[in-house]
């Protein structure tokens, strides 16, 4: 899937940046170290916005186009932060055959966020995830830690989402 740049302003802290610089210093000069740097940078910030990629580029001497090429290639890297409410729809086989696709579309329409992205206000993010191991509840989706299972039909999500929408 094509990755899109976030519209949420960057709010990295000085502490996070200190950790990132230490991380770069630790790996700098090791061939192929860009993967662990990106993985750990994502662990620090939760995502890899342009600001973080530029710090990594300046620190390692690896060009922005190469770094972005890697980040946009691997599905493990994300360009968007998680929202205050992180909505994730299980796309495992059981959920999928039980209609998770339509649920994802319905959720995207309600919260006005495309899969893989976060809304401008940072309130909601939406992701299609791999199997979360709750096949007995298929189809299932999560809002942060809240689990919603056996969603009978797409329209049913409207009521479930109500309390987060206020």
């Amino acid at each position: 899937m094509k990755k899109k740049m976030t519209t949420v302003p960057f709010q990295g802290t000085a502490e996070q940046e200190k950790q990132l610089h230490a991380l770069i210093a630790e790996h700098c000069g090791t061939p192929g170290a860009i993967m662990p740097i990106l993985q750990k940078a994502q662990a620090i910030y939760g995502y890899l916005p342009i600001e973080v990629q530029q710090i990594i580029s300046d620190g390692t001497g690896i060009s922005m186009s190469e770094i972005y090429g890697i980040v946009s290639f691997y599905s493990q890297f994300v360009l968007n932060p998680k929202g205050e409410y992180a909505v994730s729809v299980c796309m495992g086989t059981a959920c999928y055959v039980k209609g998770a696709g339509a649920i994802l579309d319905r959720l995207a329409a309600i919260i006005k966020v495309d899969p893989g992205e976060v809304g401008d206000d940072g309130k909601f993010s939406l992701d299609a995830t791999r199997c979360i191991g709750a096949c007995g509840l298929a189809p299932v989706f999560l809002v942060n830690e809240d689990v919603y299972g056996r969603v009978e039909k797409p329209e049913a999500v409207d009521g479930m989402m109500k309390k987060y929408m206020e």
């Binding site: 899937m1 094509k2 990629q53 922005m64 186009s65 190469e66």
Partner: peptide, 19 residues
């Protein structure tokens, strides 16, 4: 090094980082 392959598969496009 201002251009490179972005995304993958059918979504691949050659261009600058972040498009």
């Amino acid at each position: 090094s201002v251009i490179g392959p972005n995304n993958r598969g059918f979504d691949i496009s050659i261009g600058c980082s972040f498009g």
